[in-house]
Amino acid sequence: MARPRQFDEKTVLAAVRDQFWTAGYAATSLEDLLRVTGLGKGSLYAAFGDKRRLYLRVLGDYVEATHGALRAVLADAPRAVDGLRRYLTAPAADPTGAGALRGCFLANSASEMAAADADVLAASRGAFEERAGILAEAVARAQREGDFSADADPLHAARAIVAAQQGIVFMGRTGIDVAELRAVAETLADQVLSATPARQP
């Protein structure tokens, strides 16, 4: 009879995610993974597979969690445009700048791995398209509320919002002063989300 696992899976996966997030895939060794999880090699591989499979697992979990949080933010916003602004400026929200410097795990993964790993490429592309779809629903709501141009294609606008937010993420990774990053984020949000009255018939 198989022995029950003697560890908490969520805790282990969170430790693995943070290790990959901080150091990247290439710079994370098996020894690093064993150290942060406290597991032996046999236990780690038996539970989650090799390093690459573990990476894909935590990347998928990260995307699921962040998209769930994004849906909640957008749903709870008094007006859809408020939720879109919060999404756009989120990379500059940490007053210490530590969050901006760390970046987005998905964006970091795409930058490091997508060109060389077809599975990471597919996962990254799918995740960004899913994110655009979530934001497109908020854009459509903002249009109904009169806060976004009625002429805009919601999905095209959503993809532009993702691209703008990822630009802020990239700037944060360079170590720019957090106050300056916040000013850039607010300016960009003003431009991307500026209210455009619907055309009169």
Score class of each variant (00 low, 15 high):
S29T: 04
S29M: 00
S29L: 01
L30V: 11
E31I: 01
E31M: 01
R35T: 13
R35G: 00
V36L: 09
T37Y: 02
L39M: 15
G42K: 11
G42Y: 05
G42P: 00
Y45C: 05
Y45E: 11
A46Q: 12
A47L: 10
K51F: 00
K51C: 01
K51P: 04
R53A: 14
R53I: 00
L54H: 00
L54Y: 05
L56R: 13
V58E: 11
G60Y: 12
G60I: 14
D61S: 12
A65W: 10
T66M: 09
H67V: 10
G68I: 04
A69M: 08
L70W: 01
R71T: 05
A72I: 06
L74A: 03
A75L: 08
D76R: 13
A77I: 08
A80K: 01
V81E: 13
D82Q: 15
G83N: 09
G83F: 07
G83S: 10
L84F: 07
R85N: 10
R86S: 14
L88Q: 06
T89G: 05
P91V: 05
A93V: 14
D94L: 08
D94A: 08
G97F: 03
G97D: 02
A98W: 01
G99Q: 12
G99T: 09
A100Q: 06
A100H: 08
L101V: 04
L101Q: 10
C104E: 14
F105N: 14
L106I: 10
L106S: 07
A107Q: 11
A107E: 13
A110N: 11
E112D: 09
E112R: 11
M113Y: 03
A115H: 10
A115N: 11
A116T: 15
D119W: 00
V120S: 11
L121Q: 15
A122F: 03
A123P: 07
A123R: 15
R125E: 15
G126L: 09
F128D: 06
E129I: 01
E130Q: 15
R131L: 15
A132N: 11
L135C: 03
A136D: 01
E137L: 05
E137N: 03
A138F: 01
V139A: 06
A140L: 08
A142Y: 02
A142C: 05
A142H: 05
S149N: 00
A150E: 10
A152L: 08
A152F: 05
D153I: 03
A157D: 07
A157W: 05
A158R: 06
R159V: 04
I161R: 07
I161L: 15
V162P: 12
V162G: 07
A163P: 02
A164S: 13
A164P: 11
A164C: 14
Q165V: 00
Q165W: 01
Q165D: 02
Q166E: 15
G167Q: 12
I168G: 10
F170R: 14
R173V: 06
T174Y: 03
T174D: 06
T174E: 09
G175R: 03
I176K: 11
